[in-house]
Amino acid sequence: MSSQTVFAPWTDPTQKPLIRFQGVTKRFGDFTAVDNIDLDIYTREFFALLGPSGCGKTTLMRMLAGFETPTEGTILLDGQDMAPVPPNKRSTNMMFQSYALFPHLSVRDNIAFGLKREGKPKDEIHARVEEMLRLVQLQKFAARKPHQISGGQRQRVALARSLAKAPKLLLLDEPLGALDKKLREETQFELMDIQEKTGTTFVIVTHDQEEAMTVASRVAVMDAGQLKQVATPPQIYENPNSVYVADFIGEVTIIEGTVRKDGEVYAMDWAEGQPPIRIRSALDLTDGSRGYVAVRPEKVEIHMQKPEDDNVLRGKIIDIGYLGNLSTYHVELANGQIIRAQNFNTERSTRQTFTWEDEVWVNFTTACGVLLES
């Protein structure tokens, strides 16, 4: 068993955050883009700001970079108020989705550009550029121009250039958006590796939940300028704090009903003539209040015969998504509610156990769903 300590400075009250947002609001005229946000980000974190377009994540990042000024509140970097510090004097660097490489300069000169502007000695620049080329594994391509290398390699040049000045903080604005799916997945792991090697704090803005969940130590889910939940990827996936977060992250079925305490669990009446759904929860809900059960498809089992188990529901398969390693079944319940169930395709066979229009049973245990208030 590994003796490595788990990286979680946010759980240690003695740790001081590198970045601190205190009551930060940003308004553009009548529109509030960021609404009274308090947030701490720690040194060496790979932190993701995640949310749909227009949720305020890019505005939050632009304020951190110094391209926008908060309407209200304070942003501290390493204990220093950033308000009077212009963007070029901050120990931050920003990598844009477009990469913004100079087409007439070689890979080496693109990486060296910021260092030359700072007037660093030539031998120091050369040593740093070589170090960056090794870090992003582009030594062989150092003399090429940006149009002579692939999209993924251009992305690495932009990353090397951003890291060359050894910023305390690197801001990444949708950095993988221009890459195809396979290359994007490969690059996510490269980014994580580079972040770990350099020890630089990374803050990434993305609308891609899979990307945020893969790379980040913690994720802030945003909506309408507010933080909905800030937690580690497993916490956000397994213990969302609201219907919005549960619905935004991954595939999920959300069933609405009326709850009542029933011994050690809550029972939720959700459809006439149907057995109640029983869920374990630490929430303190009053009998008769509205509740929502969120359940992930991999937690739902599907059967041809009725099982002896908790939360057994009858339905009909109306859709099947075959994804190679697994199949997702959309099962319509008696009241028209669709519940998703997943089966791993462990055997190499083209014959499917379940097919369209099959009458089936689905079930999930009392610990597999999450009870939410709203």
Rank of each mutant, 00 (worst) to 15 (best):
R348A: 15
S53G: 05
L372A: 09
Y237K: 09
Q305N: 15
I302C: 07
F344I: 13
L179E: 12
E264N: 14
Y322K: 11
L227Q: 01
L179W: 12
H207L: 05
V300C: 01
N363D: 11
D247T: 12
L371N: 05
S150R: 08
F354V: 00
V312W: 00
V293A: 02
E332G: 04
K89C: 12
A166P: 02
D173V: 07
G315L: 04
R280H: 12
M132K: 07
K261M: 13
N88T: 09
V203A: 01
D262S: 14
E256Q: 13
H126V: 15
N325Q: 14
K16P: 00
K228W: 08
S281K: 06
V312Y: 04
I125Q: 03
G199Y: 03
Y329K: 03
S374D: 15
V300Q: 03
G56I: 01
V157I: 12
G177M: 13
L176E: 07
R128G: 06
E301K: 15
A246G: 10
F28A: 02
S106P: 08
L179F: 12
A112K: 10
Y244D: 06
D262L: 12
P275D: 12
I302A: 04
W10L: 04
L170E: 01
P146N: 07
K168G: 00
S327M: 08
W270T: 02
Y99G: 11
P9Y: 01
E347S: 14
T214D: 03
V295L: 06
H147N: 15
Q337D: 08
R62A: 07
V85D: 03
E301S: 15
Q4C: 14
Q148G: 11
D109P: 02
D310M: 10
N335I: 10
F102G: 10
Q226W: 08
P297T: 03
D358Q: 03
D309E: 15
S327E: 13
T32L: 05
T353E: 14
T69C: 09
T286R: 15
T25I: 07
L101A: 08
E190N: 07
I194F: 05
A341E: 02
A100D: 09
V252K: 00
D123P: 08
R62W: 04
I338K: 04
T200A: 02
S242N: 09
D309A: 15
E185A: 12
A271D: 11
H207A: 08
R154M: 10
E68P: 01
D109S: 10
Q80Y: 10
K197Q: 12
Y322V: 14
P84C: 07
Y329M: 03
Q188R: 14
I41A: 00
K228V: 12
G288T: 02
A267P: 02
Q153Y: 06
Q337P: 10
E210M: 05
G152S: 07
V203L: 01
G199Q: 04
K116W: 06
S2A: 09
V6W: 05
R62G: 05
G73P: 08
F31Y: 12
R44V: 00
V6Q: 14
K316V: 15
I204S: 07
E190W: 07
P234I: 08
G66M: 03
E301H: 15
P9Q: 07
E174R: 11
L283M: 11
D40V: 05
W270M: 06
G23M: 09
D208C: 06
T214F: 01
I19W: 03
T328Y: 05
S2V: 10
